[in-house]
Simulated assay, not measured.
Amino acid sequence: MNEGKFVFSLAAYTVTINKTGSKKSLPLDAFDGSTSFLEMLHDFIKSRRGSDVTYAHKKRILRFAAVDKIQSDAFTAKLQTGEYGFTSDLYDTNLKANAYNRKMSEAEMLPCGGQVNSDTTIGFFAAMFRS
């Protein structure tokens, strides 16, 4: 029995920039000679802070929760992911009773984050989903 343990799936994503038709990854700090992908991604996430993207066909949501300042050549973003489209009872283990009935439109939001270093040709992001 896995008492007190939760099972989650972790989906890892990589970020690379390539010229059209080329397999060679360009440096993230100046992929076109002057534009920093790090700053561009930072500004994109920062501008969407508090907003979300809904994938209705999969009943999933991605929320841009926060973005840390760029520190030297890296930044970390805090995103949240969730699934909706089903109901469930939330059970209070202290009261030994149902505390809340989750609605079809509600999603439990789980952390999702990533880090991009500007001096490399690849960035990493990970999303967590309940299995």
Rank of each mutant, 00 (worst) to 15 (best):
R130Q: 13
V116Y: 01
T81F: 01
E3P: 04
M1E: 04
L110E: 00
Y55P: 02
S51D: 07
S105E: 04
G82E: 00
K59E: 07
H57E: 13
K23G: 12
T87W: 03
R130G: 11
F6P: 00
S105F: 06
T76I: 15
Y100G: 06
R102F: 00
A12W: 01
S88I: 10
L26T: 02
S22A: 10
T20Q: 12
T54N: 12
G50T: 02
Q80N: 07
Y84Q: 08
L28F: 00
L90E: 14
C112E: 00
G50I: 01
K96E: 00
D43G: 12
V67K: 05
D92H: 13
L26Y: 01
S25E: 04
S36K: 05
A66V: 09
R48M: 08
P111K: 12
E106W: 02
S9F: 03
D92S: 14
T20S: 12
Y100N: 07
D92M: 13
Y84K: 09
T35N: 05
S9W: 01
Y55Q: 13
D32T: 01
N18V: 04
E83M: 14
R60N: 03
S51Y: 06
A66S: 14
K59I: 10
S22L: 10
L62I: 08
M1Y: 03
G123M: 06
H42K: 11
L10R: 08
I122Y: 05
T14N: 10
E39P: 01
L10E: 04
D32Q: 05
V7A: 13
S72T: 15
I122F: 03
D32W: 02
A11R: 14
F125Y: 05
K46T: 02
K23V: 09
S131M: 13
K46I: 01
Y84T: 07
K46G: 00
T87F: 03
T16C: 06
E3Y: 07
D43V: 14
A126T: 11
D92T: 15
N2E: 07
A30W: 01
S105C: 05
H42V: 10
G114A: 08
K23W: 09
G85S: 11
A77E: 00
A127W: 03
A65V: 12
T16S: 07
F86H: 12
E3W: 06
D119M: 14
K96I: 06
F64S: 05
T14H: 03
S22M: 11
G50L: 07
K96T: 06
Y55E: 07
C112L: 08
G114H: 00
A77H: 00
K103D: 00
A65R: 10
K5T: 15
P111R: 06
N98M: 12
L10M: 13
G123I: 06
D119H: 12
I70H: 04
K19H: 09
H42Q: 11
F31Y: 02
